[in-house]
C-alpha cells in the first residue's frame, strides 16, 4: 500500500481547506468497530477528523508529548493489541481503533519535601507496586517505547534514580495502567520517582541559590536601573557591542568585561 501523500491537504495545518481531493489512496479503518475510508497518509487523529469527528476528548497537543490521545488497535486475524498516540501513528488498512482518553488511576498525595528517596517511600505510597507479576504488558503498551516494567522493578528494588531515568520520556497517557493486570498506576509511580530524584538524589544546583541571594541583596540592581533609564541609541549601542560567549567555549569561560557580573 502506497503511503505517499500527494493531494490531500492537511486540515490541521491550515484553516479551512475545503473538501478532500480524493486522488490519494484510501484505506479502510474501523473506529470502535465502524468502518470508514480515509486517506492512507493520515495519522489516526486526522483520520478521525476526516471521518467527521470533532475531537474534544482524546486530543491535546497534536505533537506527541501531552499524552491525551492514547490509542489501542488491532488487525483482523491477529491476537496482538497494539498501541500508539493517535497524533503520531499513521493509519494502516483494517485497523480496529479505539482511543482511551482517560483511565482512572490511583494517585498518592504527598509532600515531596518530607519524603526520603527510597524504595520504602514508593512502597508506602503505592503498596500495590508489589502486586506486579512481571508480565511486561505495560512495556508492550507504552507508545513511547519506555521499558515500563523495568522502571517499576527498579522502583521495587529501591533504585529510585534508575526508575526516574527510565521513565523520563513518559507522557502519562495511562495506557500502561489501563492494561495492567496488577492494577498499578505506573505513570504516577514514575513521576513520584522523578520528583524524588530531582528533589533529593540529584546534586543541588548551588549556583542558582547563590544568584538568588545576590539578586535579593540587590547586587545587580544598579546595572539594571542604568539600562532601564538609558537612551535608546545608547542601549542599542551597548547591545550591539555586548560580548558573546563563543559557541564552543568551556563552561567556565570568562568574559572580558566583568562590570556587571560577580566574580569571586
Amino acid at each position: 500500500m502506497s503511503k505517499i501523500p500527494v493531494e490531500v491537504k492537511d486540515k490541521s495545518s491550515k484553516k479551512k481547506t475545503g473538501g478532500p481531493a480524493g486522488t490519494e489512496a484510501m484505506v479502510p479503518i474501523f473506529v470502535m468497530g465502524k468502518r470508514y475510508e480515509v486517506p492512507a497518509s493520515l495519522t489516526i487523529q486526522k483520520a478521525l477528523e476526516y471521518a467527521g469527528y470533532q475531537l474534544v476528548r482524546g486530543c491535546g497537543c497534536r505533537g506527541g508529548i501531552c499524552g491525551a490521545c492514547g490509542t489501542v488497535y488491532r488487525f483482523p486475524g491477529s491476537y496482538r493489541i497494539e498501541v500508539g498516540l493517535a497524533c503520531q501513528t499513521v493509519v494502516e488498512p483494517d485497523m480496529y481503533i479505539t482511543q482511551i482518553p482517560f483511565f482512572p488511576a490511583n494517585k498518592a498525595v504527598y509532600d515531596i519535601e518530607k519524603l526520603e528517596p527510597t524504595g520504602s517511600t514508593v512502597a508506602a505510597l503505592y503498596p500495590e507496586i508489589f502486586k506486579c507479576v512481571g508480565c511486561g504488558t505495560c512495556t508492550r503498551s507504552c507508545p513511547m517505547d519506555i521499558d515500563v516494567m523495568e522502571y517499576i522493578s527498579r522502583a521495587i528494588r529501591g533504585d529510585v534514580a534508575g526508575a526516574a531515568e527510565l521513565s523520563f520520556d513518559c507522557v502519562m497517557c495511562g495506557l500502561c495502567s489501563a492494561r495492567c493486570p496488577a492494577e498499578e498506576a505506573q505513570y504516577n509511580i514514575g513521576i513520584l520517582c522523578r520528583r524524588l530524584y530531582g528533589r533529593h538524589i540529584a546534586p543541588r544546583a548551588k549556583h542558582v541559590n547563590k544568584v538568588v541571594d545576590l539578586i535579593e541583596k540587590g547586587k545587580f540592581q544598579k546595572g539594571l536601573e542604568k539600562l532601564k533609564r538609558m537612551k535608546m541609541a545608547e542601549l542599542k549601542k551597548i547591545y550591539n557591542e555586548r560580548e558573546i560567549e563563543p559557541d564552543m567555549a568551556e563552561e567556565y569561560w570568562e568574559p572580558e568585561d566583568k562590570t556587571f557580573i560577580i566574580v569571586e
Partner: peptide
C-alpha cells in the same frame, strides 16, 4: 542568568 561568574540579569 544563574551563572554569576559570566552572566547576570543585566545581560
Amino acid at each position: 542568568a544563574t551563572k554569576s561568574e559570566k552572566d547576570s540579569p543585566y545581560y
